[in-house]
Simulated scan of single mutants.
Amino acid sequence: MAPGQRIRILIAEDQPMIRRAFASMLALESDLEIVAQAADGAEAVQEARRWQPDIVLMDIQMPRLNGIAATRQIVRDCPDAQVIILTTFDTDELIFDAICAGAQAYLLKDAEEEEILETIRAVSRGHSRLAPNVARKLLDEFRRVRRPAAPLDDDLDQEALTDRENDILQLIVAGKGNKEIAAQLKLAEGTVKNYVSRILEKHNARSRTELAVKTLNRRAE
């Protein structure tokens, strides 16, 4: 995203009062712009294809098409759009399904306003964000399914990474965004973005969060 460019946001929420509340909150921020709103998952996919937003604030439980299925379609059809799940539900199944669908962040609706705004800005810079209790659930899952570590090149189900791709993968797992990776490795941000796309493809991952989950799980002892 170019410096000074506003973050373009699509709000997908089936409850009109909640949708209006989010819209009112975001409208007060000079660096944020609401480009569209949707009342269900199918409309969210349609509006995302039309407006190509930077960020999609996505509820999970919505009519016609739920937020996880909508996330999967948006990630596939709008590669520059980043999805933030904003929901009242934090069950293990929904969290893992949302991450595997391609969501870059998972917050609960009782999050503080500042946390929601910070997450939008962070995700637009290439970061991932998880609510603390969601992060704990993921760590518990790592421990539950842990397996002996294996070098990346020994994973027969995965195409080998180059040395540079491995460097970038380590920084992604450490939570670094594209801008930070570019500065640390002295690369153009666009070059880093291209590397990240190739790494995601090689790992068959839809998002940086899913990529980090797979990598940490592979290394767990």
Rank of each mutant, 00 (worst) to 15 (best):
A69G: 01
A70F: 09
A70N: 04
T71W: 09
Q73Y: 01
I74P: 13
V75W: 02
V75D: 09
R76N: 11
R76L: 11
D77Y: 07
P79L: 10
P79A: 03
D80H: 14
A81H: 14
Q82V: 00
V83C: 08
I84W: 01
I84L: 09
I85P: 02
I85H: 03
I85R: 00
I85V: 15
L86Q: 06
L86E: 00
L86R: 00
T87F: 03
T87S: 11
T87D: 00
T88V: 13
T88A: 13
T91I: 01
E93R: 10
L94D: 13
I95D: 05
I95L: 08
F96E: 00
F96D: 01
F96T: 01
F96M: 02
F96C: 01
A98W: 10
I99Q: 04
C100W: 14
C100K: 14
C100Q: 15
C100V: 07
G102K: 07
G102P: 07
A103L: 05
Q104H: 09
A105C: 08
Y106C: 05
Y106F: 14
L107H: 05
L107T: 02
L108F: 12
L108S: 13
D110L: 01
D110C: 03
E112H: 04
E113Q: 15
E113Y: 07
E114N: 12
E114A: 15
E114M: 01
E115G: 00
L117K: 04
E118P: 04
T119V: 01
T119W: 11
I120T: 07
I120F: 08
R121S: 10
R121P: 12
R121V: 03
R121C: 08
V123H: 02
S124T: 02
S124M: 06
S124H: 04
R125W: 09
R125I: 00
R125S: 09
G126M: 11
G126T: 08
H127D: 02
H127L: 06
S128L: 08
R129C: 11
L130T: 05
L130C: 02
A131S: 11
A131V: 02
P132C: 13
P132T: 11
N133Y: 08
N133L: 13
N133C: 05
V134R: 05
V134H: 06
V134K: 06
V134E: 06
V134W: 13
A135F: 15
R136I: 12
L138F: 07
E141F: 13
R143K: 12
R144E: 05
R144C: 10
R146N: 13
R146Y: 12
R147D: 03
R147Q: 15
P148F: 10
P148V: 08
P148H: 12
A149G: 11
A150E: 14
A150H: 08
D153K: 13
